[in-house]
Design a protein around this nucleic acid. Structure first.
Length: 457
RNA sequence: GGCUGGGUGGCAGAGUGGUUAUGCCGCGGUCUGCAACACCGUUUACGCCGGUUCAAUUCCGACCCCAGCCUCCA
């Protein structure tokens, strides 16, 4: 079998994946901040992570998949002090911060389920791990990596000589203060480990700490929770491409300072879905949700298939038109597979080619091309069926679960259809065509097959 | 401004120093009373300018354009 090779952002190259502990993989994926619904761009990254997990499992590895939920601690834009996004969200929704975290967290899990993504082995919430985060910051403090400002405890990034290596940051070139006030920070790249609550305002989410009442900085939750569930050095850490320069850079800094490791052996990033040549931004308020697509008449699996047509490491231009292309292709794939009946033998030839692509840094577009070649090959239907079902363990399109729409047409449509059959038997083609138009007027399409007329919407 | 990455046919999107994926759309055909479905076939491409090479879309350099990051962000 082709060895599994994955791209590692840290080294900027594709290299062979070998688990740190034989047969087992620790996989940590940065989850959502639950102050709003996930949009389809966010979801693209989770589909990538699901494919990654399935490929690892396909290679016989046991995956400990951990996903965090950030339910506290993100600051909004503008002022140097900033506001917690969760707190802002509560004003918008009228829910408490805790209710809102639960609500959007559940909505997120529901989206993943609809996309047929495998459930993570462990979900962890930032607010459930405040003690671990405080302990982590205390350790950093003990080792001399922190300093105090008016608004919090900060990490001194200049104490590490390779800070920013993951993103190849040119620190001197960064425009500190260009978009946000620096406050009491000593260096542009320093970041908060613990933020103090404002004295004039009672926060919904705040905790006691050795430094005063407040809440944890964003980055610390991932270092603390991944260490708890996967250890100080584990196999793969993933997230969106936007995390490379700041969030993951800072996670690495914290963990290097505290534990002396670079946290993960492989760093993998999903790239953005672009809408009108720009990223889809959750903070901009208007964005496309999975539910929006369903309202437009697409299935959630249409979206999953569509995502598989591009490599996870390239930005993808979203449009309803291209999604529609994916829908048509998937419908043909499902329909064909359904018509093949019972599975026979798996074609090793096609399966091996398929594996050579999925193991080549998850090249799903190529893998799909092999699926299509197989579909149009001269294998027997039974063998095609067996082969595609095996491939679907990675594709996750739930091919075996698909059934054609059992169209329940209203009586008047059925009656028109029967009338048309009579006209056709009498070779009254003019009348038959009129009746087909009338059926179309009810929103149905009638197709004449060998087994008789067939209705669909 | 700096840094990171990218510019491929109507659309999406792979890939490669020479034989130029795949899907959708379009076009032609088979099938059909006509269609639809399905199947078969098929047109159009590698941002721009130089360089290296027998040969460049693929390697190198300049330029133009796009995205991301320097705030929270998948």
């Amino acid at each position: 079998m082709t060895p599994l090779r994955l791209f590692d952002t840290y080294e900027r190259k594709v290299r062979e994946f070998k688990p740190i502990n034989p047969g087992k993989v620790g996989l940590y994926a940065c989850g959502p901040t639950v102050y709003n619904y996930a949009h389809i761009g966010n979801l693209r990254t989770y589909i990538f992570e699901d494919i990654l997990r399935r490929v690892l499992e396909f290679n016989g590895l046991e995956v400990n998949h951990v996903v965090n939920i950030t339910d506290v601690g993100h600051l909004t834009s503008d002022a140097d002090t900033g506001e917690d996004k969760m707190e802002v969200g509560t004003r918008r929704t009228g829910m408490s911060a805790w209710e809102m975290a639960e609500f959007y967290g559940d909505a997120f899990k529901s989206d993943l389920k609809h996309l047929n993504a495998l459930e993570p082995v462990t979900w962890c919430k930032a607010t459930d791990h405040i003690d671990e985060q405080i302990a982590f910051v205390q350790d950093l403090e003990k080792k001399g990596y922190t300093y105090r400002t008016d608004d919090g405890i900060y990490f001194n990034s200049q104490k590490l000589n390779n800070y920013g290596y993951l993103a190849r940051l040119d620190i001197d070139g960064l425009q500190g203060g260009a978009r946000v006030e620096q406050g009491g920070r000593m260096h542009v790249t320093d970041f908060a480990l613990w933020k103090f609550s404002n004295t004039d305002e009672k926060r919904q989410m705040e905790w006691d700490s050795p430094w005063g009442v407040g809440f944890p900085g964003w980055h610390i939750e991932c270092s603390a929770m991944s260490a708890k569930y996967l250890g100080d050095f584990f196999d793969i850490h993933c997230g969106g491409e936007d995390h490379i320069p700041i969030h993951h850079t800072n996670e690495i800094a914290q963990t290097e300072a505290s534990r002396g490791t670079r946290l993960a052996n492989f760093w993998m990033h999903g790239y953005f879905l672009q809408l009108n040549n720009a990223k889809m931004a959750k903070s901009k308020g208007d964005f496309i949700r999975l539910e929006t697509l369903v309202d437009e008449g697409f299935s959630t699996q249409d979206y999953r298939y569509y995502c598989l047509t591009a490599h996870y490491r390239t930005q993808m231009s979203f449009s309803l038109e291209s999604l529609d292309a994916g829908r048509t292709a998937l419908a043909r794939m499902l329909q064909a597979t359904y018509s093949w009946g019972e599975p026979g033998e798996i074609s090793e030839e096609y399966l091996q080619r398929f594996v050579s692509y999925i193991n080549d840094d998850l090249n799903m577009p190529r893998a799909l091309a092999v699926v299509w070649e197989m579909i149009r090959s001269d294998l027997t239907s039974e063998n095609k069926k067996a082969t595609i079902l095996k491939m679907d363990e990675v594709l996750g399109l739930d091919i075996s679960g698909w059934r054609p729409d059992a169209t329940e047409a209203p009586p008047e449509v059925l009656s028109l259809m029967h009338e048309r059959e009579v006209a056709r038997r009498d070779k009254d083609w003019k009348r038959a065509d009129e009746l087909r138009d009338m059926i179309a007027g009810h929103g149905y399409v009638v197709e004449d097959t060998a087994e008789g007329p067939k209705l669909s919407r």
